[in-house]
Design a protein around this nucleic acid. Structure first.
Lengths: 337, 337
DNA sequence: AGAATGTGCCGAAACGATTAGCTCGGTGTC
DNA sequence: GACACCGAGCTAATCGTTTCGGCACATTCT
């Protein structure tokens, strides 16, 4: 591979001049410029990002740590992030914490080692990591996504989970349901806790309370939702409506319904937050709140790039998105009797 | 950030010794070693990957270019690749060519600039890029995935598309169908061409031929499949069975069926290759061939890492995986009359 | 005319690591 | 006792860039 020195030699100029031509960081007279460009072309020279990065202290890399790459929600996020990052001139390094703090820690170390310019993180919930990160020297701009941890140094982009759950629950209540069950995510995550709170709050405002056995939480996974649903619904006193905390879990519930021969929406109404994309053809369509993943991701990266380029001293910004209720055919009015 | 010099100064040794301790690339006496380690700890020193990479000519980065990040098939591939790459000690840089050669070209340039150690590529079909890549100096080990282009320099990992389509088609023929239609992908891709060929071949062997209007191809997208299906099926002489070339397209077809009030499998049988994951709960379950994406991805990365670490002079290897037919409830025997 | 100010380009010092080659004692052998 | 050898650590070159300061030379000002 040709280096800048080879080019300099070939064009009979100094490396400084070649550099100036490449970045046009200084005036170079037309004849010299032409000679240099010819040499570059001739030798098929291409500057080494690595050397450039070492010198400039940047890497043009943005890291993304998602909590579960197997989840279509996050897959979609990767999609949006790749596009946004490329548009800003960076490249995307992807990590999967798989909901495990240990993996997140490793990813953060790796990000620091790679000198990524910034990171978009779906935190798995241990604020300690970030504190440690700040304590150490090589801190990098960070935007926290989707879930909140107590980190006063980072920008955050989140969805209003309480509002999402309230909206869905109110809709079910409006249909006449009162025996509403719920399957939510881990309660140590704001996406789990907030959604449960929103649901309970909405019910409380109407003066109804869920039965204890009808409120369950577990990991945000299809198979977990499946088994919880099977257990909860395979009993006579099952709920007439079910609020499910996210898209993959809703799929698990649907699978359980199919196996139990419970028909939706005739026998039970199902509603969720945070549907997954790409299943538009499947019936019944889920009644759910749609989260603007793409806009949220774009916004997060805008914040991140801004912090990378404009400096880190600004106070952290917290952007909260509002979900929108989208009606499908998975809910029906309560049949009396 | 502390550098190796700071550590050397603090421990009153040379940078060479510090380096030796870090990589234990040479014997260092216990007392010195201890001093150095203390200094490292004290200063919270962390070697800069970037400097190290510049020196060693590696980057510990592996690139992945997929053809369509929005496609769950490729999202799953990202998932598998991230895990495998991390296990090998690399990090994954993700690019989306979005089926556009231009984007692929840009990604390749970026990969070269970043000095990625290797790349796993789902090619969008222009062999010229790879030829150019080889012509230029900074060639990097490459494994081509899923689709074949005429590249004698790269390892490839593919699925036997012809066999996949044949299997599915034979199954439909066995059920008595002869008016079989098909919606496949772009014919300039082996995943499109091969699957169509496999289907036609299987039919020819039984002495049946599809009606011209029943064989269609288009992009591997849900919405494309939807509109093609709507058009093809909204006519009296529609096929009694349909072979769809991939998972997302099958979803599009299912959506079209729902909108046209055509019942599957009673009114029409649907089968596909390459189903998408995570929709296990939806009925009817698709009859399809399952492609071992994860194993394929792992194998591809094994080849890639081997080539990175063991040298590039070996002859290219081509690994072909065989698909497996999985029965769902989306097909039914042909009803006579 | 001599000083002051620009121009256009170059030389060389960084950036932060790795590593070849060297030095300087201490051992072992004959 | 001379010689070779070895072990432990250091010096300095190197990776491929960017960029600061300087150096001629040309132009303008007094």
């Amino acid at each position: 591979m040709a280096t800048i020195k080879d080019v300099a030699k070939a064009a009979a100029v100094s490396t400084a001049t070649v550099s100036a031509v490449i970045n046009d960081s200084a005036y170079v007279s037309p004849p010299l410029r032409a000679r240099v460009q010819a040499a570059i072309h001739e030798l098929k020279y291409e500057p080494s990002q690595m050397a450039r990065n070492l010198k400039k202290g940047r890497s043009e890399l943005i890291a993304l740590i998602v909590a579960d790459l197997a989840n279509p929600f996050f897959a979609r996020m990767v999609w949006a992030a790749e596009a946004a990052v490329a548009a800003w001139g960076y490249s995307l390094v992807v990590f999967n914490s798989d909901e495990k703090p240990e993996n997140e820690r490793k990813a953060l170390a790796r990000i620091r080692a790679l000198s990524c310019d910034g990171a978009l993180i779906v935190p798995v919930g241990l604020p300690a990591h970030y504190a440690q990160r700040d304590a150490e020297g090589r801190a990098f701009p960070t935007v926290l996504f989707g879930r909140v941890v107590d980190d006063r140094h980072s920008d955050t982009v989140t969805i209003d989970n309480v509002a999402a759950a309230s909206q869905v629950t109110n809709y079910l209540l409006d249909l006449g349901h009162t025996r509403i069950g719920s399957i939510t995510g881990p309660l140590h995550l704001t996406t789990g806790r907030g959604r449960l709170d929103g649901m309970l709050e909405a019910m409380a405002r109407r003066g109804v309370a869920p039965e204890p056995g009808h409120v369950r939480s577990g990991e945000f996974r299809e198979d977990v939702a499946y088994s919880v649903a099977r257990e909860m619904l395979d009993r006579p006193a099952r709920p007439t409506a079910l609020y499910v905390a996210n898209g993959v879990m809703a799929l698990g519930v649907m699978r359980a319904l199919a196996d139990l021969s419970i028909h939706c929406p005739n026998d039970i109404s199902i509603a969720s937050t945070d549907t997954i994309s790409g299943i538009g053809g499947l019936r019944p369509r889920l009644t759910r709140t749609e989260h603007p993943i793409i806009e949220m991701t774009n916004e997060a990266l805008r914040l991140l790039v801004d912090r990378i380029q404009r400096g880190k001293d600004k106070p952290p910004r917290n952007v909260v998105f509002q979900p929108a209720l989208v009606l499908g055919e998975s809910c029906a009015p309560l049949r009396r009797g």
